[in-house]
Nucleic acid binder design. Structure first.
Lengths: 343, 343
DNA sequence: TTGTAAGCGTTATCAC
DNA sequence: GTGATAACGCTTACAA
């Protein structure tokens, strides 16, 4: 039990050959006879030998390990992305180290430190809401570690990014609302220093402009990710003499809150008020009326992020510059909350 | 950029002292003067030195790394648990390696291999639905790696386990249903070789027996985690001449499916049919009628699992045998789907 | 207090 | 084909 771990030294001794040869045999080195490889491998499993990845990493410099940093593992979007990343990484014999930033810049920096210490080959990151600086990310690059940002990116830092088509999806959503006859469309957004929220806002604005709608300035609310902010903003807007007739939100949680408020105020959804959200949370299709939303294909985003690393960075199979950004097409899902029976 | 990583050798040279002394200074060794520690650390950050965890691990034998294996990262229960684990681990300066088994025994074995190779100090695992053997888990122990099972455990292997009070929670739930006047309570379960599902079934049976209810044998359905199985079973049961008047389910997804079927058959919930589930998924409180459920305190389970390791195993602060099992108390949440307005 | 040197388990380089 | 040997970066007896 507590006896020492079996190493290639033991194997070498057992088999009467040198350590280096055993190592080569185990690693399928081309200059080693197949028969010997078989013999070595057989004895290795018999003796219950397990390679020590730490030793190999130390020697080789690379660790076959990917670090992932997200705000919260248990937000459905992120857990889906991570699941997608894990799939691809395990197929490619890479290990995943996962950290949460809890949307704090400080914790994000700590996470990045940890990953550097652990010698990861690449970091996949979706930054904290607080993050406005990129110094910690530059640190990663300084240490010759690859970096891919996904979803929430820091603008001033360029490099590889994997993103949804946030702007155009938002544009489409708003056009869909307009098609349904909604004219006074309010926007409930997030912190604009984050690309994803800014892009959604821009898509919204573009559609509004294109269709020549006039929207009161106070119909546009930024930085409303917290439930309380939404409650306050929506209650105020819906109490106006001329209230909005639709809401486009950057999250489904916002949609849900607004739906509840509307119900409590006796406002009919979707007849009097249309609602369209983002993220396609599990609950969105289950409640009544069901909530229209934009599916971000989060698991696919995870797959693509990881594949981006393996195909374009690690194996350098393709040209770079053209591929520094990968866009994941969203799917727009129209449900009851935005579909008027043509009134 | 691509110049070599800064090591303690560089630091030692820069500072005109020996490597070992630098190492001690950085690690806060008591025999090193505080002033020197400060000087060394200052220079270290200036030169952008980052310790190489691989090297340290190799030397020390321990890696300050925990491996986690779950069926799916993006099931809300597991992502909550993982989030809880991560919190505690990062507080204790430990890194997390995460693997998914996709409920396959084979993939679980691979994951375990990976973790052994990576020299983790401990494995936290919730086994795959397929897993019936414990050989791969014994392998972990053979390599002197600690093991804690949580939620889904392999029975034949004893050792540390962190679990909900599944049996007694189920017992209570069924009693609550009986209090509401439900008498023909069906049970929709999971694979009984998994402790969690077996325990829930036992709690159900105990309550049924205690209250002397006579339940037709076909009201008890095992192994019904897939949606299709639930649809078939529930449709059949509800079409009987004497159908069940309540369902106790081991998951909220089953509850949801049953609710839909009831609605489509014109059966009133909760008046004609009571529904009670397990897991307290986000959607359970949102839909109408809202679904009664058992909250498993999943994040807390993650916290406790990790704390179990740090407090009882790593630091051996307390006696063992009494602590080989930790029970996380669930919370029973009664909502509309099981609350009759007393008819 | 401080330094020397061995060793953790691999793999890469060079030699035979 | 095969085997010595050094090196990866760090910690830790042991010395001084």
């Amino acid at each position: 039990m507590t006896k020492k771990r079996v190493t290639i030294y033991h194997l070498a001794e057992e088999l009467g050959m040198s350590v280096s040869y055993v190592s080569r045999a185990l690693n399928n080195h081309p200059l080693v006879n197949q028969k010997i490889k078989d013999r070595v491998k057989k004895r290795a499993t018999e003796l219950n030998y397990k390679p020590n990845a730490n030793a190999a990493n130390l020697r080789q410099g690379s660790s076959r390990t990917i670090g992932v940093v997200v705000p919260q593992i248990n937000y459905s979007f992120f857990s889906d992305v991570i699941s997608g990343i894990e799939e691809v990484c395990s197929q490619n014999n890479h290990t995943l180290i996962i950290c949460q930033s809890h949307d704090s810049y400080k914790q994000e920096c700590l996470a990045v430190e940890t990953l550097i210490h652990n010698n990861v080959d690449c970091v996949f990151i979706s930054v904290a809401a607080e993050t406005q600086s990129a110094t910690h990310l530059e640190e990663i690059k300084k240490h010759d570690i690859e970096l891919i940002q996904f979803d929430r990116c820091v603008d001033q830092l360029d490099g590889y990014k994997v993103l949804n088509d946030n702007e155009s999806a938002s544009f489409e959503v708003v056009e869909k609302l307009i098609e349904q006859g909604y004219k006074r469309i309010a926007f409930i957004g997030g912190p604009v220093h984050l690309n994803v929220f800014r892009d959604r806002k821009e898509g919204y604005l573009r559609a509004i402009k294109k269709h020549g709608l006039s929207i009161p300035y106070n119909f546009i609310i930024d930085n409303a990710l917290s439930n309380q902010t939404v409650v306050e903003a929506a209650t105020e807007l819906l109490s106006l003499e001329e209230p909005p007739d639709a809401f486009f939100n950057v999250s489904d949680h916002q949609s849900l809150t607004i739906l509840k408020i509307a119900k409590s105020m006796g406002i009919e959804v979707p007849q009097q008020l249309g609602i369209f959200g983002f993220a396609n949370e599990i609950f969105s299709g289950m409640i009544s009326p069901s909530l229209s939303s934009v599916d971000q294909k989060s698991k696919l985003m995870g797959n693509k992020t990881a594949n981006f690393y393996f195909n374009h960075i690690l194996n350098k199979r393709e040209e770079f510059p053209s591929l520094s950004k990968e866009i994941i097409k969203t799917e727009i899902i129209v449900r009851e909350s935005s579909k008027r029976n043509n009134s």
